[in-house]
Design a protein around this nucleic acid. Structure first.
Lengths: 204, 204
DNA sequence: GTCTATATGTTGATAGAC
DNA sequence: GTCTATCAACATATAGAC
């Protein structure tokens, strides 16, 4: 399985994608600073110079991976948000699908989350801005439930942060080669989300 | 504030501590692979050779930091576990204090959590073994509540994992220089933990 | 677009004076 | 226990042939 299989860019050449894919694997395994450009090109089955045919620098690889990862996760969360008008149902789907996305893209998500420091200041600012939209979307979803009298959430921004934490932190420990039940994990997170907002009158 | 101020080792020399402290700061900021030995010794106000007077290698610094961090966090969780016999009260204290520890030691905890891959196989195995005890302690705390009929927790290991996630993931985004209300965050996590186990008959 | 060969700086770690 | 000086290996990135 390639690291980016579910989030590929159609307009990208196969060789370019292959280098990016190799870079994400290497960064996830050894960190950005611990990965040499030779690690990347060897994994991609190319010479050391091949990297610079497709990318300006090692940092450019991390930049593209970061954009790809954040956009993929954001698309997922947006689709889940639109899946239902019912606040309780919607929150369940959001937490479930966002968890599932992180389980399915654990390597990419790990790089994106833990190697932010290695981006140039401009690229980092770009990614940080993207990140705020996750929090905003979750806040909106919680506020809808509170307004409708369906959720009891005293601290909306804090609870939004906690719900995102629950999903994102999966990539810290989850290993698809070892762990056997990703679907169960996503279901559990959705169930815990329901409890955290104490949905009134919903199915117990 | 030094990165290890709350978890220092009394038998350690001041110079040695100063190097370790500098290393944790640098690792937290730039990653293990992105940090040079000169970054560390410059932060410590020493020459490049000073590192090797006190440590065998750069990896030895990460190893010591990892042990220090895990032991500090485990001590915290153990103390919280022993703080009460009441399952609900105990869980609240555990999540609150464990959250607080991670907020107080965000840099050290980040290094310990995110740079595991840079440890030698033997050192990594040592740390992984230490990690299991956190999960075990949380499982025990949940089982006590379930047995007493105070908690409704269908998936005990999964919920234990989620509770630890909620605390540990704080270090991914928390920045003491920016964020203003660590105490509120710890209180919120404890409150969310209470909701997640749906304590019956406790103060709503 | 791929390669081999290489330029140039930096890396982790050591030697040996004080 | 600290320093200055240094080594050999490695890093990122480029030149130029095919």
């Amino acid at each position: 399985m390639t690291a980016l299989s579910t989030t590929s860019h159609p307009a990208t050449s196969a060789a370019r994608r292959r280098v990016l894919d190799a870079a994400v694997d290497a960064f996830a395994e050894k960190g950005f600073g611990g990965t040499g450009t030779r690690d990347i090109t060897e994994r991609a089955g190319r010479s050391p110079a091949a990297l610079y045919v497709h990318y300006e620098s090692k940092e450019a690889l991390l930049h593209e991976a970061s954009l790809l990862g954040h956009r993929g996760a954001l698309d997922c969360l947006n689709r889940a948000y639109a899946a239902s008008d019912d606040p309780a149902e919607r929150l369940q789907v959001m937490v479930h699908d966002f968890s599932q996305w992180h389980l399915d893209n654990a390597k990419l998500a790990r790089v994106v989350q833990y190697e932010l420091h290695a981006l140039s200041p401009a690229h980092r600012a770009e990614v940080v801005a993207l990140r705020r939209t996750f929090q905003q979307l979750m806040v909106t979803a919680l506020e809808a439930g509170v307004s409708a009298g369906r959720f009891d959430v005293p601290d909306v921004p804090g609870t939004a942060r906690a719900l995102l934490s629950l999903c994102i932190d999966l990539v810290r420990w989850f290993d698809p080669a070892i762990s056997r039940d990703p679907k169960k994990v996503a279901r559990l997170n959705a169930d815990l989300a329901r409890r955290m907002v104490q949905t009134k009158g919903a199915g117990r």
